[in-house]
Amino acid sequence: MAQPSIHEGQSLPVIQQQRVIIRNKYGEKLVGVLHETGSAELVILCHGYRCSKENKTFKNLAAALEEEGISVFRFDFAGNGESEGSFQYGNYRREAEDLHAVVLHFSEAKRLISAILGHSKGGNVVLLYASTYSDVHTVINASGRFNLERGNESHLGTDFLQRIRIDGIIDVKDDTVTSFIRTQFSLVYSTNWIFSPVVAMQPLRQINGPSLSGSILFSDFFKILKLGIINFLRANAAS
């Protein structure tokens, strides 16, 4: 199987950024940006909770991968950024389906998806994707949540389950006074799903960075993240 074209000392590729629109299985338009280096291999970036493809860390990471001759596609999940659809708090399986639509689009265009990389919530989405589908063999989880039962109360309130059971929906307002609606069905998928043993059997490389406030965004140690990912891809390409 072809691997990413990662060679130290190679000349820098000419980068072209292309806006790409892909429809998911529900007919919603997913908007993304393709960083085209001319390589057949492609790494897909998946953003986190209430984020988008325009996240500074993602844009910097795309630039770093470009320098290695790797083409990159970053996109907005449905209900986020420029993509169509309604924002939902959990929605992991729907986002995995969005990712599948993206993978199918580029696979049909004869591109090799060499890796999927998810940050924060996106890290959980790529793991769920790998446990559901078998078409991408390199998965990178950057700061995905390890316990999905934690954190819901801070976003939804301590009585969120009771309110959803009574009303069927929940209206939540954040610091920017933006409201969104949750259903009990999507809550089940945010707190209660199990990855396939296939994922657990894969080699694991863990990168530890400084314990800093806001470090999930990697703003204070982006270089560690960048080198860790590039070295991981190089190791996979050599294996």
Rank of each mutant, 00 (worst) to 15 (best):
E8L: 15
K173N: 09
Q17R: 11
N208H: 00
L128E: 08
Y49C: 00
N236T: 08
E153R: 15
Q10P: 00
G209E: 01
I170C: 04
D220V: 00
P203Q: 03
N91G: 10
Q202F: 04
R74D: 08
V102R: 11
F75N: 07
L233D: 02
G69K: 07
W193S: 07
F87P: 06
R93E: 13
G27E: 10
I15A: 05
H7F: 10
H7W: 00
D98N: 15
V103A: 07
V136I: 09
I194V: 13
L65W: 13
V14K: 14
S186W: 08
V102K: 10
L112C: 08
D171S: 12
D76R: 07
R94G: 10
N55S: 15
S196P: 01
R23I: 10
F73L: 13
G32L: 07
A142C: 14
L99C: 12
G90A: 14
S215F: 01
C46P: 14
H47G: 05
N124Q: 07
G27V: 12
I22Q: 11
S239G: 08
L156I: 01
A96N: 00
N80T: 07
V14W: 04
S5K: 13
Q184R: 04
I15V: 15
P13D: 07
N80W: 08
F73T: 03
N55Q: 12
A200T: 02
P210M: 00
I22M: 14
L104F: 06
N55R: 06
G90K: 05
Y49W: 05
I70W: 11
L65V: 11
A235F: 08
E36S: 11
R94N: 09
S52L: 02
V125P: 03
F195R: 03
G79T: 13
P13L: 03
T138E: 09
